[in-house]
Amino acid sequence: MSDPRRKSPLAHRKALNAPDGAVSLRERAFLAKFILRVSADGEVAEVLKLPVMANTSLKHNGSTILWLGPDEWMFMAAADGGGEMKARLGEFLGGVHHQLTDVSDHYTVIEISGRKAYEILMKLTPFDLHPGAFKIGHVAGTMFGKTAGLIINRSVDMPEFDIIVRWSMADYLWCLIAEAGREFGLPAQEPVGQVRGLRYREAS
C-alpha cells in the first residue's frame, strides 16, 4: 500500500469468523487490478499467458489472470505489485492495439472461506457453484443479490472464494453475506445506509 491515507470501502468492517471455523469473511483490500482488452488472435495471448478458455484463470509471475470475456482479461496482483505489473504489460503490448485500465479502486475483493461457504453463497446467487461444475481456478461473473460480482474459486483444502465487487456495492454485499451466514454463527451487520440515518421511521 503506497499511501497510508487510502481507505478501503470496507475499512469500517472487521473480519468475521463463525464459531468452529464454519465460515470466515474478510476484505482483501487494495489488490492491484487491471483490465486488459486485446484481441486474443496472434501471439499476445501466448506471450502474456492469457487464459483463452472461457471462465478460467491462470497464475503467472505472481499475478492472477482472469478471463472476463473473449477479448477481456483482468490482472490481479498484490497491493504493491501494480506498478511493476503495468510496466511489464506495457513492455509486451507496445505496438499492439489494446486498452489497459487500472481498476484497483473500482473494485474490491471479499474473501469467503470455510466449509459452509457453499451453503451461504448458494442462497445469494443463481450460479451453479457445485465443485463439479465450478472447478478450482474457475471464474464467473454473476449476480449476488442485487449486485453483479465476479467469483473466483480459490479452494485448496477448504472451500474458499474471492468475490470481486464494485466499490460502492461492497458494503451491501458484505452485509448480505453476513445475513446469509447467521445460521452458521456469523454476526449480523448493520448496513452503512442505516447507520447514517436512512432507517425507516418506526411506526409510533
Binding site: N55, P126, F127, A140, G141, T142, M143
Partner: peptide
C-alpha cells in the same frame, strides 16, 4: 425463470441477461 446459453460463458440463469 429460464436458462440461456451464452455463446461465450455457457448455460447461465436468465437473470444474468
Amino acid at each position: 425463470m429460464f436458462e440461456i446459453e451464452c455463446p461465450y460463458c455457457g448455460r447461465r440463469d436468465g437473470s444474468e441477461f
